[in-house]
Computed example of a mutant assay.
Amino acid sequence: MTHRDRARGCLLGLAAGDALGAPAENLTPAEIRRRWGRLTEIERGGTDDTEYAIFAASLLVRHGHALTPADVAAAYRAEVIPRVTGPMKGAGFSELGTVQALRRGLEPPMTGLAHQHGWSDGLAMRAAPYGVFCPGDPAEAARLAEQDGLVSHSGEGVLGGRAVAAAVAAAMAGLPPEQVVQAALSVVPADSWTARATGRARDAVETGAGQDDAALVAALHEAVVVPHYPWTDLAPEAVALALAAYLAGKGDVAASVTFAVSLGRDADTIGAIAGAVAGAGQGESGIPERWAARIGPVSGACLPVVAGRHVLDVADELSALVERDDPVRADLAGEPTRGRADGPPEGL
């Protein structure tokens, strides 16, 4: 399996999870079961998750490993803010607050601190391209995601993005799900909310092996969800639930994503993260054909700058860049047994 195949699988999986989860966003698991049983078919296009991931990939194409928060802030000012003439449709609290902070002349990291919503999953939802760019190197993937995140997030919001980027980087090297989740945990402090929630979610999946979906969903909500909080876009929660879905699905894209969106809460983001990680592991052929057929160019409803772009073209751009500048690391995707037979790839 080539780096390009895994890159295309990752971003297709992200877009499919985003689209599949969109109608279930903010619903309870019980309401999702009542409406669909198990949601398995894409009803409409995706949300800001896919558009922001495409935007993040464009930063890597321009700056590569030299990316800094100043570069990200400059891109917002040049490409995002001038086109925001009204509400940013579908954008999260953190991104809306970031635009306001940049308009006031603030610079990172204050742009991610000033709006008080730094804990959101806005970075986690768009962090997959950093893992695609750093196959087999979770630490570098996490570092690059943090450069992006310091513009819009703080604290646990940054850690959530680090964890997702690291998980994708490990999956891009062909590691099995348990090692992929361990890679995510390796780049966040052990005493962080993100690490604790992910650990509890992993334990719930292990303990609940053999349970029906409803019982496992209930166990994961009990382990991770903050029920009294009115918003569902908490990064530690979304990341933990997405990685749990990936484990429950044993890395299979369809099983991981359909279970992810059945969890409700921020279902499109949970589905997008689970789809990105599973897709990186399984490659383009691991994405159900009927899902791939429904993924078209994004509309730019939230980010007009990416209108008309397709995730497959973005994946090809990233892959060409990696194969040109770091062919040894790109080769990790073609030798998935290396991490198991000879020890983990560099960075794990």
Results as ranks from 00 to 15, higher is better:
M1E: 13
M1G: 14
R4M: 15
A7N: 08
A7T: 04
L11C: 10
G17P: 15
D18Y: 06
A19Y: 03
G21A: 03
T28R: 14
P29T: 03
A30V: 07
E31I: 04
R33N: 06
R35T: 10
T40V: 13
I42W: 06
I42G: 06
G45Q: 11
T50Y: 06
A53I: 00
F55P: 05
F55Y: 12
L59T: 03
V61H: 12
H65T: 11
A66W: 05
T68S: 15
P69H: 08
D71R: 00
P82V: 01
T85E: 13
K89M: 03
F93C: 05
Q100Y: 04
L102E: 09
R103A: 13
L106V: 02
P109G: 06
T111R: 07
T111W: 07
G112N: 06
A114K: 01
H115S: 03
Q116H: 13
H117Y: 12
Y130G: 02
V132P: 15
C134Q: 10
A142N: 09
R143P: 14
E146K: 04
D148L: 01
V151E: 14
V151W: 10
S152N: 09
G157V: 00
G160H: 02
R162E: 11
A169G: 08
A170I: 01
M172E: 13
A173I: 01
E178I: 03
L185H: 09
S186Q: 07
V188Y: 07
S192F: 11
R196L: 14
R202M: 14
D203P: 03
T207V: 08
T207A: 15
G208E: 10
D212W: 08
D213E: 12
A214S: 15
H228Q: 13
P230L: 04
P230F: 11
T232S: 15
L241Y: 11
L243R: 02
L247K: 01
A248F: 10
G249K: 00
V261I: 12
T269K: 02
I273T: 05
V277F: 09
A278G: 12
G283A: 02
G286V: 05
P288F: 04
P288N: 03
W291H: 10
A292C: 04
A292T: 02
G296A: 15
C302S: 12
L303S: 00
V306F: 00
V306T: 02
D316E: 15
S319V: 05
S319N: 04
R324H: 13
R329Y: 12
R329P: 14
A330V: 02
A330G: 15
R338W: 15
